[in-house]
């Protein structure tokens, strides 16, 4: 895996836990390919919207509809990939 994506994934793990107050979860509990929503993490559509705000604020990436959200929040890898592709601060 590209080093930059790996770093981004690690960063997102921490941010997700912080943003959603997931006190009983440590970063390594969220696998790169784990389903983020509706899984053991106990996240739902409202958590997705909270993460949407965080991602727009921290990476200037806007996810403004449900269909895109479902795709982007499929897994940590999908999320990092989308941010990597679209964030003005991270683009090559």
């Amino acid at each position: 895996m590209e080093e930059a994506v790996k770093i981004l994934i690690d960063e997102l793990r921490v941010k997700i836990i912080d943003t959603l107050n997931l006190e009983d979860i440590v970063p390594d509990d969220i696998g790169e390919d784990d389903q983020l929503i509706g899984s053991e993490l106990g996240l739902d559509s409202i958590d997705v919207l909270e993460l949407v705000m965080m991602i727009e604020k921290d990476y200037s990436v806007r996810i403004d509809n449900k269909e895109l959200g479902a795709k982007v929040f499929a897994s940590l890898r999908a999320l990092a990939g989308y941010i990597q592709e679209t964030s003005p601060g991270l683009s090559n």
């Binding site: 409202i46 958590d47 919207l49 909270e50 705000m53 727009e56 604020k57």
Partner: peptide, 13 residues
Amino acid sequence: ESEEHFTSPIDFI
């Protein structure tokens, strides 16, 4: 704080 850009949907609910 974000000049009316960002807020929390969880806080709104």
